[in-house]
Simulated scan of single mutants.
Amino acid sequence: MPNEFDLIVVGASFAGAACALAAAQSGLRVCVLERKRDPGDKLRTTGIIVKEAAERTLLGQLPASLVRRVEQVRLYAPSLKQIALAAPGCYFLTTDTPGVMRWLADQLRLHGVDLRLGTAFRDARREGDAWRVDGIGRARWLVGADGARSRVAQRCGLGHVRGFLYGIEYEFPHARLAHPDALHCFISKRYAPGYIGWIAQNPGGVQAGLALRHDPAHARVPDIDGFLLRVGRAGGLPLRLTPGPTRAGLIPCSGPVDPIARDGAILVGDAAGIVSPVTAGGIHAAWEHAWTVGRAIAAHQRHEGPSPERIAAEAAPRFRTKRALRWAYDRLPFDWPFDLLLCSPPLRWAAEQVYFGARRCEPLTPSECATRSPRATGGTIAGGD
């Protein structure tokens, strides 16, 4: 029947695409709803992919023109003193993120998924052992991959994200950093309380962003222009650049929601809170979890596996170490401890956990710490669209 599906997924970003592709490759009838007509429009992700995602998932098949390999991390204290880190064999991929989203949409179509762009999720209700989605049809399973303010979660009585960061990122098309082979990360309680700022070279230019703890009672817009005037020279960003596309939005940082699934409805990605509490990244974790959910749904449909709701809950990463680091980071209200401790073993260990997991970091310079502190210079960075 044309309006009968095994699975309806709401959202076509990384997590939604992973779940849909896993189920479609296993032979299920899958429909994906995406409210945007262009899946590469109005993005809220930095699109930075870690090595594990590049080597263990479908993202490893991304065209070379859409990715750029970065093997170093430069971590800056508020004074702009820095340490340069790497781990043997480890790297990140910065991306042409709009291009990646369009590539994922093509992959969905190639695998027989009924992708409906420009189609928003409005409502759903239980009908026997299935969900009826308004304007779409019926499906045994409904997956919400529709962001931190998930409508699927609201309509299906699932958990919701309780803690957020608010982030903004500029794109500078065709720009080039003086040090393009590093991910530049900046600690600043003044500009980024509760989080960090970053600058990175991507395939089409430079991306520079800033995020801070979100307090609904005292909402604050990140001062990204002031931040870039302060740190731009240290990060190798040319002055007087005019940004192109701007991304902004809420980023979950409180860990997996509860409940994450029940009665045939399951949350993945940002909707499920599967985002690192420290780095606010999560493409790999979200992809792996959503892929596991898609495979579990397919196995259950074939009467070969346990409840997908149970699998979704058990497979959700808990980020225990990173949540502990976030707790400690949030309780340091001043900048001076980072200036003092940047080169210390405890902070280096924390940096290892954040950027390279359990793998041992190695300094990239002969000394343990580069102590230069470039003075911020004048210049303007124009506001975004």
Rank of each mutant, 00 (worst) to 15 (best):
G244D: 01
P245V: 15
P245F: 13
T246C: 14
R247H: 14
R247I: 04
L250E: 15
I251R: 14
I251G: 03
I251Y: 05
I251Q: 09
I251L: 10
P252K: 11
C253Q: 09
G255F: 09
P256K: 14
V257D: 03
D258F: 13
P259K: 10
P259V: 11
R262C: 04
D263V: 07
D263F: 03
D263I: 04
D263A: 15
L267Q: 08
L267Y: 11
V268W: 03
D270G: 08
A272V: 07
G273P: 04
I274S: 03
V275M: 07
V275H: 08
S276H: 05
V278Y: 00
T279V: 07
G282C: 06
G282Y: 02
G282F: 01
H284L: 10
A286K: 09
A286S: 14
W287K: 06
W287S: 04
H289G: 08
H289P: 01
A290C: 07
A290T: 06
T292V: 09
T292L: 14
V293A: 08
V293P: 00
R295L: 15
R295G: 03
A296P: 00
A296T: 03
I297C: 03
A298D: 01
A298C: 01
A299Q: 07
H300K: 08
Q301W: 05
R302E: 05
H303F: 03
H303A: 09
H303I: 00
E304H: 09
G305Y: 09
G305I: 06
